[in-house]
Deep mutational scan, measured.
Amino acid sequence: DVEEQIRRLEEVLKKNQPVTWNGTTYTDPNEIKKVIEELRK
């Protein structure tokens, strides 16, 4: 469920934690926001 994935990513973003997505770890909040934007398409 895309909405659920977006919610999880936004939670991690608020906590300033790194996100691992498709084998890539993102630590930059701007990169995480880009992943969220991609999911919304």
Rank of each mutant, 00 (worst) to 15 (best):
T20Q: 13
Q5H: 09
P29S: 06
R40A: 04
N22Q: 11
E3V: 10
I6G: 01
E31I: 07
V35S: 01
T24N: 10
V2G: 03
I32D: 00
N30V: 13
D28T: 09
R7N: 05
T20K: 09
E10M: 14
N22D: 09
E31V: 07
E11W: 05
V19A: 08
R7F: 06
V12Q: 15
L9P: 00
P29E: 05
E11D: 11
L9D: 00
W21Y: 12
R40P: 01
K14N: 11
V19N: 03
L13Q: 03
T20N: 15
E38M: 14
K33S: 07
D1S: 14
K33I: 12
K41F: 09
K34Q: 10
E4V: 09
E3W: 15
K34G: 08
K33G: 05
K14H: 11
V12C: 15
V2H: 07
K41V: 09
T20S: 14
G23S: 03
R40V: 05
N30T: 12
T20R: 08
N30M: 12
P18Q: 10
E3K: 09
R40F: 04
T24V: 15
E11T: 07
G23T: 01
L9Q: 00
L39S: 01
E31Q: 09
K33N: 06
K33V: 10
V19H: 04
I36P: 00
K33F: 08
K14V: 11
N16A: 07
R8K: 13
V2E: 03
T24A: 09
T25R: 04
K33H: 09
I6T: 02
T25I: 12
V19D: 03
K14E: 11
P29Q: 07
K14T: 12
R7G: 04
V35R: 03
Y26Q: 00
T24F: 12
N16E: 04
K33Q: 10
N16P: 05
K15E: 08
N22W: 11
Y26K: 00
K15T: 14
V2N: 05
Q5D: 10
E3D: 12
R7E: 05
D28H: 08
E11R: 06
E3N: 12
E10H: 05
V35A: 04
K33L: 13
E4Q: 11
I36N: 00
W21A: 03
V2F: 12
V2M: 08
T24C: 05
T20H: 14
Q17C: 11
N30Y: 13
R7V: 04
N30F: 12
E3P: 06
V2Q: 05
I6C: 04
R7L: 09
I36H: 00
K41I: 10
N30S: 13
Q5V: 14
Q17S: 09
N16K: 09
V35G: 00
W21G: 02
K33P: 01
N22A: 06
Y26A: 00
D28S: 07
V12Y: 15
E38K: 08
E10R: 05
K15A: 13
V12K: 15
N30D: 14
Q17H: 06
I6S: 02
V19K: 01
R40L: 08
E4D: 12
P18F: 07
V19F: 14
Y26I: 11
R8Q: 15
E10T: 08
E11L: 11
K15L: 15
N22V: 02
E38Q: 12
Q17N: 07
V35N: 01
E31W: 02
T20L: 13
E10Q: 09
N30I: 13
L9I: 10
E10F: 11
G23Q: 03
I6M: 04
D28P: 00
E38Y: 14
D1A: 09
I32G: 01
I32S: 01
L39V: 03
K15P: 02
L39W: 04
I32H: 00
T24H: 13
T20P: 02
N22R: 07
E10Y: 11
D28I: 03
T27Q: 06
T24M: 10
W21C: 05
R7T: 06
N16I: 03
Q5P: 01
I36D: 00
E3R: 13
E31F: 05
E3L: 14
R40G: 03
P29W: 07
G23P: 02
K14P: 02
P18K: 10
G23K: 01
I32M: 03
T27F: 09
L39H: 01
E11N: 07
K33W: 14
N22F: 13
R8F: 15
T24Y: 10
R7K: 12
T27R: 05
E31K: 05
K14Q: 12
E4H: 08
G23L: 02
E4G: 06
V2I: 14
I36T: 01
R8L: 14
E3Q: 13
V19S: 02
D1I: 08
Q17M: 15
T27S: 11
T20I: 15
Q17K: 08
L13C: 04
P29C: 05
N16R: 13
K41Y: 09
L9F: 09
E31A: 07
G23E: 03
N22E: 14
I32T: 02
E11A: 11
E37R: 07
E37G: 04
L39R: 01
Y26S: 01
V19L: 14
E38S: 13
E10D: 04
Q5S: 09
E10N: 06
K15G: 08
K34D: 04
D28N: 08
E4S: 10
K15N: 14
L13W: 07
E31M: 09
V12F: 15
R40K: 09
T20M: 13
N16V: 04
K14Y: 14
I6Y: 03
P29M: 14
E37T: 07
K41P: 02
T27K: 05
E38N: 10
E4T: 10
N16Y: 05
P18C: 12
L9K: 00
T27N: 10
E37H: 08
R40Q: 06
Y26V: 03
V19G: 04
I32K: 00
R8V: 14
E10K: 05
E11Y: 05
E37K: 06
W21L: 12
T25W: 09
K34P: 01
N30H: 12
E10S: 05
P18S: 13
K14D: 11
E38F: 15
R8T: 11
V19Y: 14
E37I: 08
L39K: 00
G23H: 03
R7Y: 05
E38P: 00
N22G: 12
R8M: 15
E31H: 05
V12N: 14
L39G: 00
D1M: 10
K33Y: 12
T27V: 07
E11I: 07
E4I: 11
D1W: 15
V35D: 01
E37F: 09
I32Y: 02
L9N: 00
T27H: 10
D1R: 11
W21P: 02
N30K: 11
K15Y: 14
E31S: 06
T27A: 06
T20D: 14
V12P: 03
V19W: 15
P18W: 07
K14I: 11
W21K: 02
V35Y: 04
Q5E: 09
N22S: 04
E11P: 01
L9T: 01
V2P: 06
R40E: 03
K34R: 12
Q5R: 04
E10I: 11
E4M: 12
L39T: 01
E31P: 01
D1V: 09
L39E: 01
V35I: 15
L9W: 06
K41D: 04
P29I: 08
L13H: 03
R8W: 15
I32N: 00
N16Q: 09
R40N: 03
E37N: 08
L13M: 11
K15I: 07
I36Y: 02
I32Q: 01
E4A: 10
K41N: 13
E3Y: 15
L39P: 00
D1H: 10
I6F: 03
E11S: 08
Y26M: 09
D28A: 04
W21M: 10
R7M: 08
T25L: 15
N22T: 02
E10W: 10
G23M: 02
E38C: 14
K33C: 06
G23W: 02
V35Q: 03
T25M: 08
Q17L: 15
V19Q: 02
N22Y: 10
V35E: 02
N16L: 07
Q17T: 08
Q17V: 12
N30W: 12
T24E: 10
Q5M: 15
K41Q: 13
K14R: 14
Y26E: 00
E3H: 11
T20A: 06
I32W: 03
P18E: 08
V19I: 14
N22L: 10
E38D: 08
N30Q: 11
V12A: 15
E38W: 15
